[in-house]
Computed example of a mutant assay.
Amino acid sequence: MKDLMGKAIWDYYHHDNPEDLQTETSISELDELPVEYLFRGFEGMNTIEQKALELSEGLTLDIGAGAGSHSLFLQNEKSLKVTALDISPRSIEICRLRGIENAVCENILDFSGQQFDTILLLMNGTGIFESLGKIDIYLKKLYSLLNESGQILIDSTDILYMFDRDEDGGVYIPADGYYGELDYIVHYKGESEDPIKWLYLDFATLKNAAENNGFNIQKIIREEDSYLARLTKK
């Protein structure tokens, strides 16, 4: 792993000629991602992120923490004990430099040790599930990390709108699997990361998988095609 996302975060923090990240998926063109966006404060976050942070309580695990903006808000503004978790070594180093007291570089499937009151997965949190075929593995892992009365706050987007429609409103979607399974590629300063599997989930599909893995689920808010869901143990 070249850790290009981490390199961009590192460069921005150290004022070392940062450039915009570029991202693309198997169904979308190149898109600019300004690296400063990853350092935004609460006011710069979208409604879904803000709601998730407002609902967070107790011992909190922030999965896919990136530059640590969500963790920082919870630690500094809400005085919560937060663990920032990411597979990017450079990102976790910047989390520490920004003042996050507990930052861990590890894959969520390898992470263990305690249970949490709140588990956060934001900025299309279902992405880390990779594919529908692996969603049970991840949900079982999350179940094991959650206190009996704890909550998982996770967001995603139903990307059905990205596919072409016929005159009758029917949607042309791929026949070889679920339409939310994408390849996601990051580019930075002329380098390209190998594609990773990334999963966008419609709410009904997430609901079905969550209930099959011992969770109750409710949709907290919806914003256009995106939503925030709360999972709790049955």
Results as ranks from 00 to 15, higher is better:
residue 138 Y to C: 08
residue 140 K to I: 12
residue 137 I to P: 00
residue 179 Y to L: 09
residue 171 V to G: 00
residue 163 F to L: 06
residue 120 L to T: 11
residue 182 L to M: 11
residue 143 Y to D: 08
residue 121 L to D: 04
residue 119 I to Q: 04
residue 122 L to P: 04
residue 173 I to Y: 12
residue 117 D to Y: 02
residue 161 Y to D: 13
residue 130 E to V: 04
residue 129 F to N: 06
residue 144 S to Y: 00
residue 139 L to N: 06
residue 141 K to P: 03
residue 134 K to G: 01
residue 133 G to D: 14
residue 187 H to W: 01
residue 158 D to C: 09
residue 124 N to H: 13
residue 131 S to T: 15
residue 113 G to E: 09
residue 105 C to T: 12
residue 143 Y to I: 01
residue 184 Y to N: 06
residue 166 D to L: 01
residue 122 L to A: 05
residue 179 Y to M: 02
residue 106 E to W: 01
residue 112 S to W: 01
residue 171 V to F: 08
residue 162 M to K: 12
residue 151 Q to N: 14
residue 159 I to M: 04
residue 142 L to C: 03
residue 139 L to K: 08
residue 186 V to L: 11
residue 142 L to H: 03
residue 181 E to F: 10
residue 181 E to S: 08
residue 109 L to C: 06
residue 149 S to D: 15
residue 172 Y to I: 01
residue 189 K to W: 06
residue 130 E to P: 01
residue 112 S to H: 13
residue 112 S to G: 13
residue 107 N to P: 01
residue 110 D to M: 12
residue 118 T to H: 07
residue 164 D to Y: 00
residue 146 L to C: 07
residue 189 K to T: 08
residue 135 I to E: 07
residue 192 S to Y: 00
residue 136 D to R: 09
residue 146 L to Q: 10
residue 139 L to V: 07
residue 131 S to H: 12
residue 120 L to M: 13
residue 114 Q to K: 15
residue 124 N to I: 15
residue 123 M to V: 09
residue 134 K to S: 13
residue 141 K to F: 08
residue 131 S to E: 14
residue 183 D to G: 04
residue 123 M to C: 11
residue 185 I to L: 13
residue 111 F to S: 08
residue 117 D to W: 00
residue 127 G to Q: 09
residue 146 L to Y: 12
residue 162 M to S: 06
residue 149 S to P: 00
residue 166 D to W: 00
residue 163 F to K: 06
residue 136 D to S: 15
residue 129 F to M: 13
residue 139 L to P: 11
residue 108 I to C: 11
residue 115 Q to G: 01
residue 108 I to A: 12
residue 121 L to N: 04
residue 175 A to E: 15
residue 108 I to T: 13
residue 190 G to Y: 03
residue 177 G to I: 07
residue 173 I to H: 10
residue 160 L to V: 10
residue 190 G to F: 03
residue 154 I to N: 07
residue 152 I to W: 05
residue 167 E to P: 00
residue 115 Q to F: 01
residue 136 D to M: 00
residue 129 F to W: 10
residue 150 G to S: 10
residue 129 F to C: 06
residue 114 Q to Y: 02
residue 109 L to R: 05
residue 142 L to M: 13
residue 135 I to K: 02
residue 109 L to G: 05
residue 154 I to E: 02
residue 113 G to M: 09
